[in-house]
Amino acid sequence: MILKINDLSVRLGGSHILQGVAFDVAETGVTALLGRNGVGKTTTLRAVLGEVPATGEVLFDGRPALGRATHRLVRDGLGYVPEDRCVFAGLTVAENLRLAVRVPSPDFDLVFDLFPELRQRAGQRAGTLSGGQQQMVAIARVLLNPNRLLLVDEPTKGLAPAVVTAVAAVLERVATRVPILLVEQNLAVVRRLATDAVVLEAGRTAWRGRAADLLSDADATRSLLGVGTTAGRH
């Protein structure tokens, strides 16, 4: 297990957002972190990264992660692709990528192989890119460095259907090299990528197991996610 989470709790501004989340992420493949809006999926990722104060136990690569500084975890190979991309709008594409480099020989070959478009747009300000292009920058940033695990938060949110497919294809390729903990609302994407699944409900783990088992169980999907299995998005 690359990531083991036990009894993870987060309180923010008087509300108890996570109340004992527990699940593991396997050494290979994609683990989907699912649940309705506001159940604490993003907060779970941010707690693992040390961006919000949390209690409980998180083991990343066998070492306790809680209480360690975000940048140290990232240097140990925890790559983060945040919700809403968070590219630096005022910096050019090239600057966004250069900023992310932290090893002597970054893998620009892989990045430009996956996203040839970024090479042509190197001098363009990231704020003027389309949502899909910004998502490419956000993913490219983490792929420049070697990673032990990627945390990817809603990579297809707000993207056009064709772009969603492209992003899913990229993640599928990436997943052959590094395990991914993926927050995703689009069940078609989950079906295509995920091997394992974890469902959160009201700040707790409500379901964990094989992704295929969850998605083939129409009742479980409806009650846990509030959607029918046939609908791509609600």
């Binding site: 990264l49 961006e51 500084a69 990232v74 250069r98 932290r102 460095n145």
Partner: peptide, 21 residues
């Protein structure tokens, strides 16, 4: 300079790229 410009935009994201801001 690059780190400062990025940090002015989004400090947390700079840390999340492995930089001690």
């Amino acid at each position: 300079g690059l780190v400062i410009r990025a940090g002015v935009e989004n400090r947390d994201m700079v840390s999340a790229l492995g930089i001690d801001v």
